[in-house]
């Protein structure tokens, strides 16, 4: 992929779930490589749907979505995992696997990518200490608080230094101090070249970090 090419491009994109109304309408934007954006909008504005299109969990009903230069409409099932390995996602509902420990959850992207051995454990443990979960590495997610689960989900999303990081309300369950700390982590990743998109309701965070916003309202885009 050409370095001047946007990492994500939406061109007049609409999306609807089966049988329902459009949740996104005529959305166009481009995310340059290495950019940092907040995705804002009220509940139901389509933020999660837009992120789903970027991490290839859905397809547009019309228009064109490009991720890393690939038109998502033409991707085969076999192509998708290779692209997803370059995308870290923090899901709103965390999607942690409860039969695995926190450490094993964080290590999943590395294991799926074929990494094995003690180095994986060291690398994962280091990151978990950084997000304040050193005491909970062997805990099952169901025994952790909402904020701790969220930090496990964030650690899992960033463990393999993705080229694109998508976070859906990543600070929704943590206090302000931890919220700031996580945003600094995202900034650090961004400085190392990761393109970051954070969907959030947290206006104070958006004001404080002052990055460009993509604002959705009623399924459409409000440029900011």
């Amino acid at each position: 992929m050409n370095s001047s090419q946007p990492i994500v491009r939406f061109d007049r994109v609409a999306m609807r779930y089966e049988g329902g109304p459009d949740v996104l309408q005529d959305v166009s934007f481009a995310l340059p490589q290495g950019s940092f954006h907040f995705l804002t909008g009220e509940s139901g504005a389509g933020k999660t749907s837009l992120l789903r299109l970027i991490y290839l969990a859905g397809k547009p009903s019309s228009g064109r979505v490009e991720v890393f230069g690939h038109d998502v409409q033409t991707l085969t099932r076999a192509d998708v995992p290779n692209i997803r390995r370059h995308v870290g996602v923090v899901f709103q509902d965390f999607r942690l696997l409860d039969h695995l420990s926190a450490l094993e959850n964080v290590a999943l992207p590395l294991r799926v990518g074929g990494a094995r051995g003690q180095k994986v454990r060291q690398h994962v443990a280091e990151l978990m200490r950084w997000v304040g979960l050193a005491e909970h590495m062997d805990a099952r997610p169901s025994t952790l608080s909402g904020g701790e689960q969220q930090r496990v989900a964030i650690a899992r999303a960033v463990i393999n230094r993705p080229s694109l990081l998508l976070a859906d309300e990543p600070t929704g369950n943590v206090d302000d101090r931890m919220g700031m700390r996580l945003l600094y982590l995202f900034e650090e990743l961004n400085r190392m070249g990761t393109t970051v998109v954070i969907a959030t309701h947290n206006d104070s965070l958006v004001r404080r970090f002052n990055y460009p916003q993509i604002t959705l309202a009623g399924g459409g885009l409000n440029a900011a």
Partner: peptide
């Protein structure tokens, strides 16, 4: 299904 979906979302091939 939930587990396989998460594995797919973080980049696991079907063969994995």
């Amino acid at each position: 299904h939930n587990v396989t979906e998460v594995l797919n979302l973080i980049g696991a091939q079907d063969s994995y």
